[in-house]
Amino acid sequence: MLEIKALKKIYYNTWGGVQALKGVDLKIGPGEIVGLFGENGAGKSTLLRSILRLQSFEGEILLDGERICRKNISRLSFATCEHSFFANLTPESHREFYRMHFGCFRDKRFEALMSFFELPLYKALKSFSTGQKNQFEVIMALCQGADYILMDEPFAGNDIFNREDFYKVLLGILEPGETIFLSTHLIEEVERFISRAVLLREGRVAGDITSLELEEQGRTLMDYVKETCGYRADRVGRALDRLTEGEEQL
């Protein structure tokens, strides 16, 4: 169980501080596939980076009752659109590196996924396309042998077919105890794939709902997100009207 208690994060700059997270409380159990949604700047990436202890924060993050430290950090893996691999190394060299540092590295899964996505083993990652780099980033997160796999916009830049493939493969290979915490803007795409949706708004959890609850309520995830985030559908129309009026006056 991953427990996040009263998580706060302030980014300080010359002019003061910006509070990115204003007290996030969240529990994610083993085997869940959780989608993390929210507008740009809602605090999604900050939340994921805090869980991984890549930045300082206030509050508490516990993994099965223990604070996240060197002892249990390998139970968490991370795939990010910023990419965390070494651009000059080949996938094969990454495999060796991961094997050396993560005792539970999933060799068979690595081979299967590399072959499924037809990624070359002996070519430096810097020569890969953006889509291939994203694929590799996710492959490494899935193969590290972690129980909790955190993903931050991992498919930014991949085409729709490629993303579809990935969702299917993910559902096919995940073991019952493996948990996915996926931050994305592709709400409609991941709707069928996730078991729960968490919405962040202005640094707070604005919504937390399971797919089953959504189904029972007869709502789509997109509707839920729009309602919870207070999306104003008429905003664009009004802005266009104002612009057109201005042109007419001229």
């Binding site: 991984l52 890549l54 968490l76 991370f78 990419h83 965390s84 691999f85």
Partner: peptide, 10 residues
């Protein structure tokens, strides 16, 4: 080029 620091720090 990439944020491999994320991996190193993990």
């Amino acid at each position: 080029t990439t944020k491999s620091i994320y991996l190193m720090r993990r």
